[in-house]
Design a protein around this nucleic acid. Structure first.
Lengths: 334, 334
DNA sequence: CTGTTAGCGCGTTCAA
DNA sequence: TTGAACGCGCTAACAG
C-alpha cells in the first residue's frame, strides 16, 4: 500500500541508505545514482514519511504556534510574519487555535509538545503559572509572541503595552480632553488588559486628571462589548468627551454606538485605541490608533525562535518593539 | 534527557507493554498496577511521544486543515465548527495557512500528508488539477469544505453559491432595481467567483434585464478592491442603483466609497452580498447579505471526514447546505 | 492481567 | 561513493 524507502531502493537497484541520502540532499551521491533514485521515486510516487523521519532524526522541522483566538484579526497579521520567516528557515508551521480558553491553551501546548515540534510560539494571551508549568516540561525552546510573562522568564517579543496605552491617552489629553473613559479588556490579561489599563491611569495622573472608575468598563474584545460599554458611558449624567479603547474592534463598536445614538465622532466624542488592525480603516470615521507592528512581532519572534532552536546564543531574550500612533479621523479637539 | 516509556516501566517495576496499556486506557490492567504506573509517570514527568506512537500505530489522530487565507473572517467561523466536532471525536486539528497562493496550497497539502495526518480538510478556494493530483496520491480521506471541485470527485460540504448569488440579486430585483452592478471575485475561483457571477447573470436573465459587462468589476475580496470597484461604478455616466458584492468585505468597501462620495446607502445605492460574516453587522448601515452557514459547513465537513476515516460508508459524499437571506439595512426600494 | 518480541519507516554510524 | 546494521519510542500481537 504505502511505498517506503525500501521500495524505492529496490526499484532503483541501490540500498535504502542511498535513497535516504538523495532525499536529504546529501552531496555524497554520484549524479548517475541520484538520477536513478529520483526516477524510481517518481515512478513509485514515493512520499517521505515525516513521522518516521522525525523519530529517527529526533527533529521534525516544524514549529507549533498557538493562537488564542483565530477570529481575532490581529493574529492573522502576526501569523504572516511568523510564516514568512519560518519559510525562510525551512520550518513548517502548524497553527493550533485555543478559542480564548485557558485550559484549551494548555492542552494545545501539550499536544504540540507531544508531536515533538522543534519549537513553540505562544501568541498573545495571559501566561499563567499553569502555562509556565507546561513550558517548563518542554525541552524545546519557546517564545512568547505579542505577550510576555510577569517575570520575563520566557523569551518574548512584544510592544510595551503600558506605554502604548499611555501614548494613546496622552494624545487625547493633548487635544484638551479631561473626561476620558476607557473600554478595557479583562484585568486578568496582562498585556491587552492590565498593562493598557495601567497606561491609562498613568496618563491621567500625569495630566492631573483624577481617576474615576465609573469611567472604566471591561469588555471582552468583541464589537458588541465595545458598543455596550459605550452605551453605558453615553447614559452617564456627565458623559465622557473621549474614550480610549484597549482594542480596535471594541472601538468600532463604540463608534457605531455613538452614531446610533445620534451623536458624532469625533465632534461629540473622540475615540482612540491600540492595535491598528486592518479594521481601523474599515470604519467611518476611520479610527485613530496606536499601532502595534504586528507583522514584525511575528517575524522577530520567529527569528528569535530559530536562533534558540539552533542553540545560537542570543544577546537579548526579551525584545520590545516600538509602537507609533496613526492619526486618522476619530479624534478631535475639545 | 527525554524520558521514555521504558523509563516509566523500570520506575514502576512493570513492563513497557503495561505502561503502554495504561497510557492508552486499555482496560486490561489491574487498578493497583495502573496506579503505580500513573505515579511513575507523574514522578518522571513522562510525556508520550506522538511521533513514535504514530509510527507504531500508523495513526496520528490528527487531521490537517488547510486554510487558504487566515485573515479571511469566514474561515475563522468555519474552523470553529471543524474544531468542535474534531474535539468530540478526539482528533487534534492542525491548521496550515496557504496565503491565497495555489503553489503554497499544494505544498501545504503535501506537508500535511507527509506528516501522516489521518484525514485532510481543504477549505474554500479553487480546486485545480494540481490539487486533484495531490489529493489522488493521498491515501487518507479528504473532504472539501466551503468549496467543491468541478466534477464532484472529492467529497465536499458547501452551499450552492450560484443559487445564493441568484437569491441575492433577485432580492434587489424585487425591490425594483434594474440597473444592478456586481463586484465579483476572480472567475478562476469556482465558488466565490465564477458560481456567484453565474448566479448574478441568471437572475438578470430571469428578471428580463440585459447583461451589461460595464457593470461588472473583478475584485480580490479585500476591502480596498470593493471600494475601487464602487468608485468606478459611481463615475459611470449612468450609475447603478444597486450593487451585488460577491463577499462582505468588498461590500463594506463599497458602502464606504459611496458614503465618501457624498451618497447614501441605501437611498442612492443599495448593497447586498453573500457571506454574512461577523463584519456584516459592523458597518453602518448594516449589511444585508445571503448567509452561508459557516459553522455548520465546518461541523458537517468534519463529521463527514470522521466517517470516512472510520471507513463507515456515507450515503452522500457531496452535501449542499441551505443558505438564507439576512435582511438588514443596506437594501432599499427604488 | 502482564511480559516478550517484532516491527513501524527512516537517519546514521561504521565499514568497505 | 555505497551498503549493512542498529536504534529512535512506541503499539500490537502473542504467550503465559
Amino acid at each position: 500500500m504505502t511505498v517506503t524507502i525500501y521500495d524505492v531502493a529496490r526499484e532503483a537497484g541501490v540500498s535504502m541508505a542511498t535513497v535516504s541520502r538523495v532525499v536529504n540532499n546529501n552531496p555524497n551521491v554520484k549524479p548517475a545514482t541520484r538520477k536513478k533514485v529520483y526516477e524510481a521515486i517518481e515512478r513509485l510516487g514515493y512520499r517521505p514519511n515525516a513521522v518516521a523521519r522525525g523519530l529517527a532524526s529526533k527533529k521534525t522541522t516544524t514549529v507549533g504556534v498557538v493562537i488564542p483566538d483565530i477570529s481575532n484579526a490581529i493574529f492573522a497579521e502576526v501569523a504572516r510574519g511568523i510564516e514568512d520567516i519560518a519559510n525562510m528557515y525551512h520550518y513548517n508551521i502548524i497553527l493550533c487555535n485555543a478559542d480564548k480558553k485557558k485550559d484549551k491553551e494548555i492542552r494545545v501546548i501539550n499536544t504540540l509538545l507531544e508531536k515533538q515540534v522543534d519549537g513553540l510560539l505562544f501568541m498573545g494571551g495571559a501566561v499563567t503559572d499553569d502555562h509556565l508549568q507546561a513550558f517548563r516540561t518542554a525541552n524545546v525552546p519557546i517564545v512568547l509572541c505579542a505577550t510576555s510573562d510577569d517575570n520575563n522568564q520566557i523569551p518574548s517579543v512584544d510592544i510595551d503595552h503600558e506605554e502604548a496605552a499611555f501614548d494613546a491617552v496622552m494624545k487625547l489629553v493633548s487635544q484638551g480632553h479631561k473626561r476620558i473613559a476607557m473600554i478595557s479588556g479583562t484585568l486578568q490579561d496582562p498585556s491587552n488588559g492590565y498593562a493598557r489599563f495601567q497606561g491609562y491611569k498613568r496618563a491621567l495622573e500625569q495630566a492631573g486628571i483624577t481617576y474615576d472608575d465609573t469611567l472604566v468598563r471591561i469588555g471582552n474584545y468583541r464589537y458588541e462589548s465595545g458598543a455596550e460599554a459605550m452605551k453605558y458611558f453615553i447614559e452617564l449624567s456627565e458623559r465622557p468627551t473621549a474614550v480610549f479603547s484597549a482594542t480596535d474592534e471594541m472601538a468600532i463598536g463604540a463608534i457605531h454606538c455613538i452614531q446610533d445614538s445620534g451623536l458624532q465622532v469625533p465632534a461629540d466624542i473622540s475615540i482612540i485605541s491600540v492595535d491598528n488592525s486592518r479594521m481601523a480603516s474599515m470604519v467611518r470615521p476611520q479610527l485613530t490608533a496606536v499601532a502595534q507592528p504586528m507583522y514584525d512581532i511575528g517575524a522577530v519572534s520567529m527569528r528569535l525562535l530559530t536562533k534558540l532552536m539552533k542553540k545560537e546564543n542570543v544577546e537579548q531574550s526579551k525584545v520590545t518593539l516600538p509602537h507609533e500612533i496613526v492619526i486618522r479621523q476619530s479624534v478631535g479637539g475639545i
